[in-house]
Amino acid sequence: MENEDADRDLVDSFRARRDELAFRALYRRHTPYLFGLAKRTVAGTSASAEELVQETWIRAVERVDRFEGRSRFRTWLSGILLNCRREQIRAQTRSREEALEVDGAAPYADPEGRLDLESALARLPDGYREVVVLHYLYGYPHHEIGSLLGIRTGTSKSQASRGIQRLRSLMKHETK
């Protein structure tokens, strides 16, 4: 709660002044989280994660007057980041359905046999990876993931379930 109050103060301060110092305070507070999420979501180069974070902040500043405080500021930022990511995917001429399509995903073949979790996450198809990262790593419940990604709660659950199965096969872990 204390964190949410601090967020509200910072957002109000930035809205009132729109100055660089107030923005830097917001940036430094939330960017490590956004950058972590971006890296896991894109599972690509550092450069693309940087672009994603930069675009997220630009849109957040453009729309900050519309932030009503109904969700945590960090959740609101995460939603913007995930929207930006979907636009990236669309720009790469990949539809949302294609991204979620399991059978169409590139086949996995690791000569070493086993991957660590971070590497295995990076190998997941986009649709699975988003849900798995949001749910299992960042702890978002499925109904919030549904809101963030514009999918149904049930879809989030099923993607998470299939995603974790795919992850296990990538990591060659024993299941419980």
Binding site: F23, R24, Y27, P32, G36, E50, L137
Partner: peptide, 16 residues
């Protein structure tokens, strides 16, 4: 796995 990762140096100024 860390939830937060250090952003690259210089990103803050590029965003500004």
């Amino acid at each position: 796995l860390p939830r937060e990762l250090d952003p690259p140096p210089g990103l803050e100024d590029r965003v500004i």
